[in-house]
Amino acid sequence: MAPLLQVDNIEVYYGVIKALKGISFEVNKGEIVALIGANGAGKTTILHTVTGLLKPKTGKVIYNEKDITKTPAHKIVTMGMAHVPEGRRIFSQLSVLDNIKLGAFTRKDKDEIEQSLKYVYERFPRLEERKNQIAGTLSGGEQQMLAMGRALMSKPDFILMDEPSMGLSPLLVSEIFDIIKVINEGGTTVLLVEQNAKKALSIADRAYVLETGTIALSGNAQDLMNDESVKKAYLSE
């Protein structure tokens, strides 16, 4: 079976700076794949290139056997891909409910949207309690939940999460990772970018280790967790 997402030798530039120096990886249906690596390794750049916010100079992004390298970001969403961006990027001036509804922007069927809304509220009861609150007044953890709930509203087959643990207390981090696991068990494929390598590897099936724009290592998450060089560099043991 062809992989759900295939990234083929992409190079991405910020002006003259080469941020990704030929990255290739794949994500299979049903998997949780983690991209780990230090700050500035290019993890977020990869996600932005996959969802179309950035365009690669060379290389291809293939999703569901379709070449989406040149597809604009707003169309990629309609193909069943959702992106929970780094720093949440919720619409802080709008209410929680408006934020969630914007996640279903491309969907037409009102009943199905209502069902998705119920699903999101079940997953994140806190969002229902605060649905009329202005999103900018939520706590960090709640904002992360909102960003995830908003992404789920597009009913994605594939969800990309960028640093969901950023700035959260250890307890909340565990809660968020449990939810990622549940979302995955529901049939959604997950591509997870994390600096918290230990947590990411603990729920991932496979992982890629990034170093300054190239993939340094890849493999089974369990194997990587036991790899001496990974342990030393990313698991602070």
Partner: peptide, 11 residues
């Protein structure tokens, strides 16, 4: 508020 995030919503 945020063009990038808006695009990610399919706008």
């Amino acid at each position: 508020e945020d063009k990038g995030a808006a695009q990610l919503m399919g706008i």
